[in-house]
Computed example of a mutant assay.
Amino acid sequence: MDAGVRAALGLSLTGMSGLSLVSPAWFQSPAFCYGVFTYCSWPQGDRWNQTCLTFGSLKDMPGLAWKVSAAMLLGGWLLLAISALLLSAWALAPRRLQPRRHLGPTPVVQAAAAASTLVGLLVFPATLASPFAKEVCEGSTTYRSGTCWLSWGYATAILNVALTSLPVVGWPQMTTVPRTAVPFSGDTQGIILVPE
């Protein structure tokens, strides 16, 4: 795959991942939704009149699981951004500086980003046991959402980690076949193959 296409994919994945991180739509109830860093509330039946707030720091987050998940997801996003920057630099570098067509440490950075994001996604539903979530999602416990349901922000984050882990599995590698010269005879009726 061309380095420019990989760079474009890496940048778009970074953007989508960042969008899902700032989205408040990870768990949602009829009058409230929350994500990793943002939460919103609105009057019953008037969704256009939302009030949204963000957690200013890790110590503002209501629970250890929330803090761990936020740190892992943010770390995964930062690694994904570094990977996208490396891919972009590789795509923009002159061809003479690229003696071999490999991407250096980029697959390792992408693998670390996917692993960190996956851990954050697996830990995040444990936030349903926090007092904050129990108040919003009545009857919620760890990995049980009560009156809340999963929303598009969490689903987008799952899709991002799946797409991010694809290059870790491996892109198809192009192999070169050694070429041999086939001498032609003066006769235009046939081709004579000469073994080496």
Rank of each mutant, 00 (worst) to 15 (best):
D2M: 03
G4F: 03
R6Q: 13
A7G: 05
L9W: 09
G10L: 00
S17N: 11
S17I: 00
S17R: 08
G18T: 02
S20H: 01
F27G: 00
S29I: 06
A31P: 03
A31S: 15
F32I: 03
G35H: 10
F37L: 13
G45W: 13
Q50C: 00
Q50N: 01
C52R: 11
T54I: 08
W66N: 13
W66H: 15
K67F: 02
V68C: 09
A70D: 03
L78G: 10
L85T: 14
L87D: 13
R96L: 12
R100D: 08
R101H: 14
V109P: 00
A111C: 14
A111L: 12
A113V: 01
L118Y: 09
L118Q: 10
L122K: 08
V123T: 13
F124A: 10
L128N: 13
V136H: 11
G139Y: 05
S140E: 04
S140I: 03
R144Q: 14
S151F: 06
G153L: 09
I158L: 15
I158V: 15
A162K: 05
A162Y: 05
L163E: 09
T164Y: 00
S165H: 01
V168W: 07
Q173H: 07
T180D: 01
A181V: 07
P183T: 06
F184C: 02
E196T: 01
